[in-house]
Write a protein that binds this DNA or RNA. Structure first.
Lengths: 257, 257
DNA sequence: CTCCAATTTCGTACGCTGTACGAAGATGAC
DNA sequence: GTCATCTTCGTACAGCGTACGAAATTGGAG
Protein backbone atom coordinates (compact mmCIF):
# COMPACT_ATOMS: atom_id res chain seq x y z
CA UNK A 1 0.00 0.00 0.00
CA UNK A 2 2.72 2.43 0.90
CA UNK A 3 4.20 3.98 -2.18
CA UNK A 4 6.51 5.80 0.16
CA UNK A 5 9.91 4.16 -0.10
CA UNK A 6 10.96 1.98 2.78
CA UNK A 7 13.15 3.69 5.27
CA UNK A 8 16.40 4.44 3.54
CA UNK A 9 19.67 2.94 4.56
CA UNK A 10 20.35 4.51 7.95
CA UNK A 11 24.09 4.56 7.59
CA UNK A 12 23.99 6.72 4.48
CA UNK A 13 23.53 9.88 6.51
CA UNK A 14 26.26 8.76 8.86
CA UNK A 15 28.64 8.21 5.98
CA UNK A 16 28.02 11.66 4.61
CA UNK A 17 27.91 13.40 7.97
CA UNK A 18 30.72 15.82 7.16
CA UNK A 19 29.16 17.10 3.98
CA UNK A 20 25.67 17.49 5.34
CA UNK A 21 26.07 18.94 8.80
CA UNK A 22 25.80 22.69 8.90
CA UNK A 23 23.12 22.26 6.29
CA UNK A 24 19.51 21.33 6.99
CA UNK A 25 18.00 21.18 10.42
CA UNK A 26 20.74 20.70 12.99
CA UNK A 27 18.46 19.27 15.59
CA UNK A 28 18.48 20.47 19.14
CA UNK A 29 20.68 18.32 21.28
CA UNK A 30 19.62 17.85 24.86
CA UNK A 31 21.18 15.26 27.13
CA UNK A 32 24.84 14.88 27.96
CA UNK A 33 27.46 15.88 25.44
CA UNK A 34 29.10 12.96 23.73
CA UNK A 35 32.53 12.41 25.15
CA UNK A 36 34.18 11.55 21.86
CA UNK A 37 33.23 11.97 18.21
CA UNK A 38 32.23 9.48 15.58
CA UNK A 39 35.44 10.30 13.75
CA UNK A 40 37.50 9.45 16.78
CA UNK A 41 35.71 6.17 17.19
CA UNK A 42 36.21 5.27 13.55
CA UNK A 43 39.86 6.33 13.63
CA UNK A 44 40.48 4.23 16.70
CA UNK A 45 38.88 1.26 14.99
CA UNK A 46 41.07 1.83 11.94
CA UNK A 47 44.19 1.97 14.10
CA UNK A 48 43.16 -1.23 15.79
CA UNK A 49 42.53 -2.96 12.48
CA UNK A 50 45.84 -1.78 11.06
CA UNK A 51 47.72 -2.98 14.11
CA UNK A 52 46.02 -6.23 14.98
CA UNK A 53 43.69 -7.14 12.14
CA UNK A 54 39.98 -6.86 11.69
CA UNK A 55 39.25 -9.60 14.18
CA UNK A 56 40.70 -7.38 16.91
CA UNK A 57 38.14 -4.70 16.13
CA UNK A 58 35.62 -5.62 18.77
CA UNK A 59 33.15 -3.26 20.33
CA UNK A 60 34.67 -3.99 23.71
CA UNK A 61 38.19 -3.21 22.57
CA UNK A 62 37.24 0.08 20.98
CA UNK A 63 35.24 1.17 23.99
CA UNK A 64 38.15 0.38 26.26
CA UNK A 65 40.39 2.70 24.27
CA UNK A 66 38.21 5.60 25.31
CA UNK A 67 37.41 4.36 28.78
CA UNK A 68 33.79 4.03 27.75
CA UNK A 69 31.32 1.28 28.44
CA UNK A 70 30.90 -1.10 25.58
CA UNK A 71 27.31 -0.26 24.92
CA UNK A 72 28.09 3.43 24.76
CA UNK A 73 29.49 2.90 21.30
CA UNK A 74 26.02 2.18 20.08
CA UNK A 75 25.10 5.82 20.54
CA UNK A 76 27.78 6.66 17.97
CA UNK A 77 27.31 3.85 15.50
CA UNK A 78 24.31 1.59 14.96
CA UNK A 79 26.22 -1.68 14.70
CA UNK A 80 29.62 -3.18 14.16
CA UNK A 81 28.87 -3.75 10.50
CA UNK A 82 28.01 -0.10 10.05
CA UNK A 83 31.25 0.80 11.77
CA UNK A 84 33.20 -1.30 9.30
CA UNK A 85 31.68 0.61 6.42
CA UNK A 86 32.54 3.90 8.09
CA UNK A 87 36.09 2.67 8.58
CA UNK A 88 36.38 1.76 4.92
CA UNK A 89 35.20 5.13 3.73
CA UNK A 90 37.24 7.05 6.25
CA UNK A 91 40.47 5.24 5.48
CA UNK A 92 39.81 5.80 1.80
CA UNK A 93 39.75 9.50 2.49
CA UNK A 94 43.26 9.36 3.90
CA UNK A 95 44.76 8.61 0.50
CA UNK A 96 45.23 11.76 -1.53
CA UNK A 97 44.49 11.19 -5.17
CA UNK A 98 47.40 12.20 -7.38
CA UNK A 99 46.99 13.98 -10.69
CA UNK A 100 46.45 11.62 -13.57
CA UNK A 101 49.27 11.37 -16.07
CA UNK A 102 48.61 11.88 -19.75
CA UNK A 103 49.82 8.51 -20.90
CA UNK A 104 46.87 6.08 -20.91
CA UNK A 105 48.96 3.15 -19.79
CA UNK A 106 50.35 5.11 -16.88
CA UNK A 107 46.87 6.19 -15.94
CA UNK A 108 45.59 2.63 -15.72
CA UNK A 109 48.69 1.52 -13.86
CA UNK A 110 48.17 4.28 -11.37
CA UNK A 111 44.61 3.20 -10.66
CA UNK A 112 45.68 -0.35 -9.95
CA UNK A 113 48.80 0.53 -8.03
CA UNK A 114 47.04 3.03 -5.82
CA UNK A 115 44.43 0.44 -4.91
CA UNK A 116 47.14 -2.12 -4.33
CA UNK A 117 49.21 0.12 -2.07
CA UNK A 118 46.18 1.04 -0.07
CA UNK A 119 45.16 -2.57 0.43
CA UNK A 120 48.70 -3.40 1.42
CA UNK A 121 48.59 -0.72 4.08
CA UNK A 122 45.12 -1.68 5.28
CA UNK A 123 44.61 -5.32 4.40
CA UNK A 124 41.52 -5.56 6.55
CA UNK A 125 39.71 -3.69 3.77
CA UNK A 126 39.71 -6.98 1.92
CA UNK A 127 37.57 -8.50 4.63
CA UNK A 128 35.05 -5.69 4.79
CA UNK A 129 32.32 -6.49 2.41
CA UNK A 130 29.01 -4.91 2.87
CA UNK A 131 25.79 -5.98 1.29
CA UNK A 132 25.79 -2.84 -0.82
CA UNK A 133 28.71 -1.05 -2.39
CA UNK A 134 29.85 1.46 0.13
CA UNK A 135 28.77 4.72 -1.47
CA UNK A 136 30.39 6.96 1.09
CA UNK A 137 31.82 10.35 0.17
CA UNK A 138 35.42 9.22 -0.04
CA UNK A 139 34.50 6.13 -1.99
CA UNK A 140 32.53 8.29 -4.37
CA UNK A 141 35.46 10.65 -4.83
CA UNK A 142 37.66 7.68 -5.51
CA UNK A 143 35.29 6.23 -8.06
CA UNK A 144 35.02 9.52 -9.88
CA UNK A 145 38.81 9.71 -9.98
CA UNK A 146 39.03 6.18 -11.29
CA UNK A 147 36.56 6.98 -14.02
CA UNK A 148 38.58 10.03 -15.00
CA UNK A 149 41.53 7.70 -15.47
CA UNK A 150 39.66 5.64 -18.05
CA UNK A 151 37.80 8.55 -19.61
CA UNK A 152 38.72 9.63 -23.10
CA UNK A 153 40.23 6.31 -24.08
CA UNK A 154 37.39 5.43 -26.38
CA UNK A 155 35.53 3.13 -24.01
CA UNK A 156 31.78 3.18 -23.68
CA UNK A 157 30.33 4.27 -20.35
CA UNK A 158 29.69 0.68 -19.36
CA UNK A 159 33.15 -0.38 -20.40
CA UNK A 160 34.65 2.40 -18.34
CA UNK A 161 33.00 1.02 -15.23
CA UNK A 162 33.97 -2.53 -16.08
CA UNK A 163 37.56 -1.60 -16.79
CA UNK A 164 37.90 0.08 -13.42
CA UNK A 165 36.36 -2.99 -11.82
CA UNK A 166 38.83 -5.31 -13.50
CA UNK A 167 41.79 -3.17 -12.47
CA UNK A 168 40.91 -2.76 -8.82
CA UNK A 169 39.70 -6.34 -8.60
CA UNK A 170 43.06 -7.50 -9.84
CA UNK A 171 44.87 -5.23 -7.40
CA UNK A 172 42.74 -6.71 -4.65
CA UNK A 173 43.64 -10.24 -5.63
CA UNK A 174 47.33 -9.47 -5.47
CA UNK A 175 46.89 -7.82 -2.12
CA UNK A 176 45.01 -10.87 -0.92
CA UNK A 177 47.87 -13.14 -1.94
CA UNK A 178 50.30 -10.99 -0.06
CA UNK A 179 48.08 -10.98 3.00
CA UNK A 180 47.75 -14.74 2.97
CA UNK A 181 51.48 -15.10 2.67
CA UNK A 182 52.19 -12.74 5.54
CA UNK A 183 49.59 -14.38 7.73
CA UNK A 184 50.96 -17.81 6.96
CA UNK A 185 54.41 -16.83 8.11
CA UNK A 186 52.97 -15.27 11.21
CA UNK A 187 50.71 -18.17 12.15
CA UNK A 188 53.04 -21.03 11.38
CA UNK A 189 56.17 -19.18 12.44
CA UNK A 190 58.01 -20.33 9.36
CA UNK A 191 58.73 -18.75 6.02
CA UNK A 192 57.25 -20.21 2.89
CA UNK A 193 60.54 -21.90 2.02
CA UNK A 194 60.75 -23.39 5.49
CA UNK A 195 57.20 -24.69 5.24
CA UNK A 196 57.98 -26.45 1.98
CA UNK A 197 61.08 -27.95 3.45
CA UNK A 198 59.29 -29.12 6.55
CA UNK A 199 56.50 -30.72 4.54
CA UNK A 200 58.51 -31.95 1.58
CA UNK A 201 58.74 -35.54 2.72
CA UNK A 202 55.08 -35.75 3.55
CA UNK A 203 54.12 -34.21 0.25
CA UNK A 204 56.28 -36.60 -1.69
CA UNK A 205 54.74 -39.48 0.15
CA UNK A 206 51.08 -38.56 -0.26
CA UNK A 207 51.51 -37.43 -3.84
CA UNK A 208 53.41 -40.56 -4.79
CA UNK A 209 50.44 -42.04 -6.60
CA UNK A 210 49.62 -38.94 -8.60
CA UNK A 211 51.35 -37.33 -11.53
CA UNK A 212 51.74 -33.60 -11.87
CA UNK A 213 54.36 -33.02 -14.53
CA UNK A 214 53.44 -29.43 -15.28
CA UNK A 215 52.82 -28.47 -11.68
CA UNK A 216 56.16 -29.90 -10.71
CA UNK A 217 57.95 -28.10 -13.50
CA UNK A 218 56.25 -24.79 -12.79
CA UNK A 219 56.62 -25.20 -9.07
CA UNK A 220 60.31 -25.87 -9.42
CA UNK A 221 60.74 -22.82 -11.62
CA UNK A 222 58.89 -20.67 -9.12
CA UNK A 223 60.85 -22.08 -6.23
CA UNK A 224 64.14 -21.30 -7.92
CA UNK A 225 63.05 -17.84 -8.94
CA UNK A 226 61.59 -16.63 -5.68
CA UNK A 227 62.39 -19.24 -3.07
CA UNK A 228 58.64 -19.43 -2.75
CA UNK A 229 55.62 -20.82 -4.54
CA UNK A 230 54.44 -17.42 -5.65
CA UNK A 231 55.66 -13.86 -5.78
CA UNK A 232 52.77 -11.43 -5.66
CA UNK A 233 54.89 -8.44 -6.63
CA UNK A 234 55.87 -10.00 -9.94
CA UNK A 235 52.38 -11.28 -10.43
CA UNK A 236 51.22 -7.70 -10.13
CA UNK A 237 53.54 -6.46 -12.84
CA UNK A 238 52.81 -9.32 -15.19
CA UNK A 239 49.05 -9.41 -14.81
CA UNK A 240 48.64 -5.67 -14.87
CA UNK A 241 50.63 -5.42 -18.09
CA UNK A 242 48.45 -8.09 -19.73
CA UNK A 243 45.20 -6.47 -18.62
CA UNK A 244 46.24 -3.04 -19.79
CA UNK A 245 47.48 -4.52 -23.05
CA UNK A 246 44.07 -6.01 -23.55
CA UNK A 247 42.18 -2.83 -22.76
CA UNK A 248 44.37 -0.63 -24.95
CA UNK A 249 44.19 -3.13 -27.79
CA UNK A 250 40.43 -3.05 -27.46
CA UNK A 251 40.12 0.71 -27.83
CA UNK A 252 42.87 0.78 -30.45
CA UNK A 253 40.99 -1.76 -32.52
CA UNK A 254 37.87 0.34 -32.40
CA UNK A 255 39.30 3.71 -33.38
CA UNK A 256 42.62 3.06 -35.09
CA UNK A 257 43.61 6.61 -35.80
CA UNK B 1 69.34 -27.71 17.17
CA UNK B 2 66.91 -30.07 15.52
CA UNK B 3 67.59 -30.25 11.82
CA UNK B 4 64.60 -32.51 11.66
CA UNK B 5 61.77 -30.49 10.15
CA UNK B 6 59.05 -29.36 12.48
CA UNK B 7 56.03 -31.55 12.53
CA UNK B 8 54.43 -31.36 9.11
CA UNK B 9 51.04 -29.90 8.51
CA UNK B 10 48.69 -32.40 10.12
CA UNK B 11 45.86 -31.89 7.67
CA UNK B 12 47.97 -32.86 4.68
CA UNK B 13 47.53 -36.55 5.37
CA UNK B 14 43.85 -36.00 5.94
CA UNK B 15 43.50 -34.23 2.62
CA UNK B 16 45.18 -37.07 0.77
CA UNK B 17 43.55 -39.83 2.75
CA UNK B 18 41.99 -41.50 -0.30
CA UNK B 19 45.22 -41.81 -2.21
CA UNK B 20 47.31 -43.03 0.69
CA UNK B 21 45.13 -45.49 2.53
CA UNK B 22 45.69 -49.05 1.51
CA UNK B 23 49.31 -48.12 1.19
CA UNK B 24 51.76 -47.91 4.10
CA UNK B 25 51.04 -49.12 7.57
CA UNK B 26 47.31 -49.21 8.12
CA UNK B 27 47.56 -49.05 11.84
CA UNK B 28 45.63 -51.36 14.06
CA UNK B 29 42.42 -49.79 15.16
CA UNK B 30 41.18 -50.67 18.58
CA UNK B 31 38.28 -48.92 20.21
CA UNK B 32 34.80 -48.47 18.77
CA UNK B 33 34.25 -48.18 15.05
CA UNK B 34 33.51 -44.67 13.92
CA UNK B 35 29.83 -44.27 13.19
CA UNK B 36 30.30 -42.14 10.10
CA UNK B 37 33.18 -41.39 7.78
CA UNK B 38 35.23 -38.28 7.25
CA UNK B 39 33.76 -38.05 3.77
CA UNK B 40 30.25 -38.05 5.11
CA UNK B 41 31.11 -35.34 7.58
CA UNK B 42 32.69 -33.21 4.88
CA UNK B 43 29.82 -33.81 2.49
CA UNK B 44 27.31 -32.82 5.13
CA UNK B 45 29.26 -29.65 5.78
CA UNK B 46 29.30 -28.89 2.05
CA UNK B 47 25.56 -29.39 1.83
CA UNK B 48 25.07 -27.08 4.77
CA UNK B 49 27.29 -24.42 3.25
CA UNK B 50 25.54 -24.69 -0.10
CA UNK B 51 22.14 -24.38 1.49
CA UNK B 52 22.67 -21.83 4.22
CA UNK B 53 26.07 -20.29 3.76
CA UNK B 54 29.37 -20.82 5.45
CA UNK B 55 28.23 -19.18 8.68
CA UNK B 56 25.72 -22.00 9.12
CA UNK B 57 28.53 -24.55 9.09
CA UNK B 58 28.95 -24.87 12.83
CA UNK B 59 30.29 -27.90 14.57
CA UNK B 60 27.05 -28.21 16.47
CA UNK B 61 24.94 -28.11 13.33
CA UNK B 62 26.99 -30.77 11.57
CA UNK B 63 26.99 -33.04 14.59
CA UNK B 64 23.25 -32.73 14.88
CA UNK B 65 22.85 -33.96 11.29
CA UNK B 66 24.33 -37.28 12.35
CA UNK B 67 22.84 -37.39 15.82
CA UNK B 68 26.32 -37.15 17.25
CA UNK B 69 27.62 -35.11 20.12
CA UNK B 70 29.36 -31.96 19.03
CA UNK B 71 32.74 -32.95 20.34
CA UNK B 72 32.60 -36.24 18.50
CA UNK B 73 33.42 -34.39 15.31
CA UNK B 74 36.85 -33.69 16.64
CA UNK B 75 37.73 -37.33 16.27
CA UNK B 76 37.15 -36.96 12.54
CA UNK B 77 38.62 -33.54 11.94
CA UNK B 78 41.12 -31.60 14.02
CA UNK B 79 39.34 -28.25 13.85
CA UNK B 80 36.75 -26.27 12.00
CA UNK B 81 39.40 -24.58 9.91
CA UNK B 82 40.75 -27.93 8.83
CA UNK B 83 37.23 -28.99 7.93
CA UNK B 84 36.84 -25.97 5.68
CA UNK B 85 39.95 -26.95 3.76
CA UNK B 86 38.65 -30.48 3.40
CA UNK B 87 35.36 -29.10 2.13
CA UNK B 88 37.14 -26.98 -0.44
CA UNK B 89 39.14 -29.86 -1.79
CA UNK B 90 36.26 -32.28 -1.74
CA UNK B 91 33.87 -29.96 -3.55
CA UNK B 92 36.59 -29.30 -6.10
CA UNK B 93 36.65 -33.01 -6.82
CA UNK B 94 32.98 -32.97 -7.74
CA UNK B 95 33.64 -30.94 -10.87
CA UNK B 96 34.77 -33.13 -13.72
CA UNK B 97 37.41 -31.46 -15.81
CA UNK B 98 36.44 -31.34 -19.47
CA UNK B 99 38.87 -31.92 -22.30
CA UNK B 100 40.70 -28.80 -23.34
CA UNK B 101 39.81 -27.40 -26.74
CA UNK B 102 42.53 -26.72 -29.27
CA UNK B 103 41.82 -23.04 -29.68
CA UNK B 104 43.95 -21.11 -27.16
CA UNK B 105 41.28 -18.50 -26.52
CA UNK B 106 38.70 -21.16 -25.83
CA UNK B 107 41.11 -22.89 -23.47
CA UNK B 108 41.62 -19.79 -21.38
CA UNK B 109 37.92 -19.01 -21.41
CA UNK B 110 37.21 -22.50 -20.19
CA UNK B 111 39.56 -22.15 -17.25
CA UNK B 112 37.90 -18.93 -16.13
CA UNK B 113 34.35 -20.06 -16.80
CA UNK B 114 34.81 -23.33 -14.99
CA UNK B 115 36.09 -21.51 -11.92
CA UNK B 116 33.29 -19.02 -12.19
CA UNK B 117 30.56 -21.63 -12.46
CA UNK B 118 31.98 -23.52 -9.54
CA UNK B 119 32.11 -20.44 -7.35
CA UNK B 120 28.59 -19.59 -8.38
CA UNK B 121 27.45 -23.01 -7.25
CA UNK B 122 29.47 -22.91 -4.03
CA UNK B 123 29.96 -19.25 -3.15
CA UNK B 124 31.23 -20.11 0.30
CA UNK B 125 34.48 -21.14 -1.37
CA UNK B 126 35.19 -17.43 -1.63
CA UNK B 127 35.21 -17.17 2.14
CA UNK B 128 37.46 -20.14 2.76
CA UNK B 129 40.97 -18.88 2.85
CA UNK B 130 43.54 -20.91 4.56
CA UNK B 131 46.94 -19.72 5.62
CA UNK B 132 48.53 -21.93 3.00
CA UNK B 133 47.25 -22.76 -0.47
CA UNK B 134 45.14 -25.83 -0.13
CA UNK B 135 47.30 -28.42 -1.80
CA UNK B 136 44.76 -31.21 -1.61
CA UNK B 137 44.51 -33.90 -4.27
CA UNK B 138 41.60 -32.37 -6.11
CA UNK B 139 43.12 -28.92 -5.98
CA UNK B 140 46.31 -30.36 -7.36
CA UNK B 141 44.46 -32.09 -10.19
CA UNK B 142 42.73 -28.83 -10.93
CA UNK B 143 45.96 -26.88 -10.98
CA UNK B 144 47.59 -29.37 -13.31
CA UNK B 145 44.60 -29.10 -15.62
CA UNK B 146 44.77 -25.31 -15.52
CA UNK B 147 48.45 -25.42 -16.41
CA UNK B 148 47.71 -27.71 -19.33
CA UNK B 149 45.33 -25.05 -20.60
CA UNK B 150 48.10 -22.46 -20.73
CA UNK B 151 50.83 -24.85 -21.81
CA UNK B 152 52.20 -24.57 -25.31
CA UNK B 153 51.18 -20.97 -25.78
CA UNK B 154 54.71 -19.70 -25.55
CA UNK B 155 54.59 -18.55 -21.93
CA UNK B 156 57.44 -19.12 -19.54
CA UNK B 157 56.83 -21.44 -16.61
CA UNK B 158 56.37 -18.51 -14.29
CA UNK B 159 54.04 -16.78 -16.69
CA UNK B 160 51.95 -19.91 -16.95
CA UNK B 161 51.35 -19.85 -13.22
CA UNK B 162 50.66 -16.14 -13.20
CA UNK B 163 48.27 -16.37 -16.12
CA UNK B 164 46.24 -19.03 -14.37
CA UNK B 165 46.22 -16.89 -11.26
CA UNK B 166 44.93 -13.88 -13.15
CA UNK B 167 42.17 -15.89 -14.81
CA UNK B 168 40.84 -17.62 -11.73
CA UNK B 169 41.29 -14.48 -9.66
CA UNK B 170 39.17 -12.59 -12.12
CA UNK B 171 36.54 -15.32 -12.10
CA UNK B 172 36.52 -15.11 -8.34
CA UNK B 173 35.96 -11.38 -8.38
CA UNK B 174 32.98 -11.73 -10.65
CA UNK B 175 31.58 -14.47 -8.46
CA UNK B 176 32.09 -12.24 -5.44
CA UNK B 177 30.11 -9.46 -7.08
CA UNK B 178 27.31 -11.82 -7.79
CA UNK B 179 27.33 -13.13 -4.25
CA UNK B 180 27.19 -9.63 -2.80
CA UNK B 181 24.31 -8.78 -5.05
CA UNK B 182 22.36 -11.88 -4.11
CA UNK B 183 23.02 -11.38 -0.43
CA UNK B 184 21.98 -7.76 -0.62
CA UNK B 185 18.63 -8.67 -2.08
CA UNK B 186 18.17 -11.34 0.52
CA UNK B 187 19.14 -9.22 3.50
CA UNK B 188 17.37 -6.04 2.56
CA UNK B 189 14.43 -7.77 0.93
CA UNK B 190 14.60 -5.45 -2.03
CA UNK B 191 16.12 -5.71 -5.48
CA UNK B 192 18.94 -3.44 -6.46
CA UNK B 193 16.59 -1.20 -8.43
CA UNK B 194 14.24 -0.97 -5.46
CA UNK B 195 17.10 -0.07 -3.17
CA UNK B 196 18.17 2.76 -5.43
CA UNK B 197 14.63 4.01 -5.64
CA UNK B 198 14.19 3.87 -1.89
CA UNK B 199 17.41 5.73 -1.25
CA UNK B 200 17.32 8.09 -4.19
CA UNK B 201 16.09 11.07 -2.26
CA UNK B 202 18.56 10.60 0.54
CA UNK B 203 21.41 10.17 -1.89
CA UNK B 204 20.51 13.31 -3.78
CA UNK B 205 20.36 15.21 -0.55
CA UNK B 206 23.67 14.09 0.94
CA UNK B 207 25.51 14.29 -2.34
CA UNK B 208 24.16 17.73 -3.09
CA UNK B 209 27.43 19.40 -2.20
CA UNK B 210 29.60 17.11 -4.29
CA UNK B 211 30.05 16.78 -8.02
CA UNK B 212 30.36 13.44 -9.74
CA UNK B 213 29.84 14.11 -13.43
CA UNK B 214 31.42 10.90 -14.68
CA UNK B 215 29.97 8.71 -11.98
CA UNK B 216 26.54 10.09 -12.69
CA UNK B 217 26.88 9.56 -16.41
CA UNK B 218 28.21 6.04 -16.02
CA UNK B 219 25.74 5.19 -13.31
CA UNK B 220 22.88 6.34 -15.49
CA UNK B 221 24.15 4.29 -18.38
CA UNK B 222 24.45 1.22 -16.19
CA UNK B 223 21.05 1.78 -14.68
CA UNK B 224 19.43 2.01 -18.10
CA UNK B 225 21.29 -1.00 -19.43
CA UNK B 226 20.73 -3.42 -16.58
CA UNK B 227 18.32 -1.75 -14.18
CA UNK B 228 21.14 -2.09 -11.72
CA UNK B 229 24.47 -0.55 -10.85
CA UNK B 230 26.44 -3.48 -12.16
CA UNK B 231 25.91 -6.62 -14.19
CA UNK B 232 28.45 -9.25 -13.23
CA UNK B 233 27.63 -11.47 -16.19
CA UNK B 234 28.57 -8.79 -18.70
CA UNK B 235 31.54 -7.82 -16.64
CA UNK B 236 32.71 -11.40 -16.95
CA UNK B 237 32.51 -11.37 -20.73
CA UNK B 238 34.14 -8.00 -21.09
CA UNK B 239 36.96 -8.45 -18.62
CA UNK B 240 37.74 -11.96 -19.69
CA UNK B 241 38.00 -10.90 -23.31
CA UNK B 242 40.41 -8.11 -22.39
CA UNK B 243 42.60 -10.34 -20.23
CA UNK B 244 42.81 -13.04 -22.87
CA UNK B 245 43.52 -10.41 -25.52
CA UNK B 246 46.41 -9.23 -23.41
CA UNK B 247 47.81 -12.69 -22.82
CA UNK B 248 47.57 -13.74 -26.45
CA UNK B 249 49.05 -10.46 -27.60
CA UNK B 250 51.92 -11.08 -25.24
CA UNK B 251 52.79 -14.50 -26.61
CA UNK B 252 52.08 -13.38 -30.16
CA UNK B 253 54.53 -10.53 -29.76
CA UNK B 254 57.21 -12.91 -28.60
CA UNK B 255 56.93 -15.54 -31.32
CA UNK B 256 55.09 -13.94 -34.23
CA UNK B 257 55.04 -16.92 -36.56
C1' DC C 1 14.54 28.45 39.17
C1' DT C 2 11.88 24.36 38.33
C1' DC C 3 10.69 20.61 35.81
C1' DC C 4 10.45 17.61 32.00
C1' DA C 5 11.74 15.47 27.82
C1' DA C 6 15.48 14.05 25.35
C1' DT C 7 19.83 12.00 25.15
C1' DT C 8 23.95 9.60 26.60
C1' DT C 9 25.99 6.27 29.47
C1' DC C 10 26.57 1.57 30.69
C1' DG C 11 25.76 -2.92 33.71
C1' DT C 12 23.61 -7.06 32.98
C1' DA C 13 22.21 -10.75 30.34
C1' DC C 14 21.33 -13.81 26.30
C1' DG C 15 22.43 -16.68 22.68
C1' DC C 16 25.88 -17.97 19.85
C1' DT C 17 30.63 -19.63 18.62
C1' DG C 18 34.97 -23.02 18.76
C1' DT C 19 37.04 -26.09 21.56
C1' DA C 20 39.85 -27.81 26.06
C1' DC C 21 39.23 -31.24 29.36
C1' DG C 22 38.15 -35.46 31.29
C1' DA C 23 35.01 -39.17 32.15
C1' DA C 24 32.70 -43.11 30.27
C1' DG C 25 32.05 -46.71 27.05
C1' DA C 26 33.48 -49.87 23.35
C1' DT C 27 36.70 -52.74 21.12
C1' DG C 28 40.79 -55.61 19.54
C1' DA C 29 45.19 -57.78 20.95
C1' DC C 30 47.45 -60.48 24.10
C1' DG D 1 40.16 -61.79 31.19
C1' DT D 2 42.79 -57.79 31.10
C1' DC D 3 44.42 -53.74 29.36
C1' DA D 4 45.69 -50.29 26.23
C1' DT D 5 43.56 -47.67 22.89
C1' DC D 6 40.18 -45.40 20.61
C1' DT D 7 35.50 -43.15 20.23
C1' DT D 8 31.87 -40.74 22.26
C1' DC D 9 30.23 -36.71 24.46
C1' DG D 10 28.66 -33.64 28.70
C1' DT D 11 30.33 -29.78 30.79
C1' DA D 12 32.59 -25.58 30.87
C1' DC D 13 34.99 -21.40 29.40
C1' DA D 14 36.16 -17.34 27.05
C1' DG D 15 34.87 -14.57 23.56
C1' DC D 16 31.58 -12.24 20.45
C1' DG D 17 27.50 -8.70 19.07
C1' DT D 18 23.91 -6.55 21.01
C1' DA D 19 18.85 -6.16 23.35
C1' DC D 20 17.09 -4.15 27.30
C1' DG D 21 16.35 -0.97 30.79
C1' DA D 22 17.95 1.86 34.50
C1' DA D 23 20.64 5.87 35.76
C1' DA D 24 22.74 10.12 34.86
C1' DT D 25 23.05 14.37 32.41
C1' DT D 26 21.64 18.21 29.92
C1' DG D 27 18.89 22.18 27.32
C1' DG D 28 14.63 24.47 26.78
C1' DA D 29 9.99 25.78 28.38
C1' DG D 30 7.14 27.60 31.93
Amino acid sequence: MSDVPDQPDPSLRLLWRHRTDGREETKVKRGPKQKVSVDEVVDAAIDLADAEGLAAVTMRAIAQRFGLGTMTLYSYVPSRDALLVLMADQVTGRTTLPDLPDDPRKRLELVANLAHDELRAHPWLLEVQDVRPWLGPNMSDRYEWQLRAVDGLGLTDLEMDQTVAVLIGFAGNIARSELMKRRAEQVTGMTEAEWWEANYDTLEEVMAGSHYPLANRVGTAAGEAYQAATDPARELDYGLARIIDGVLAHVGKRSPD
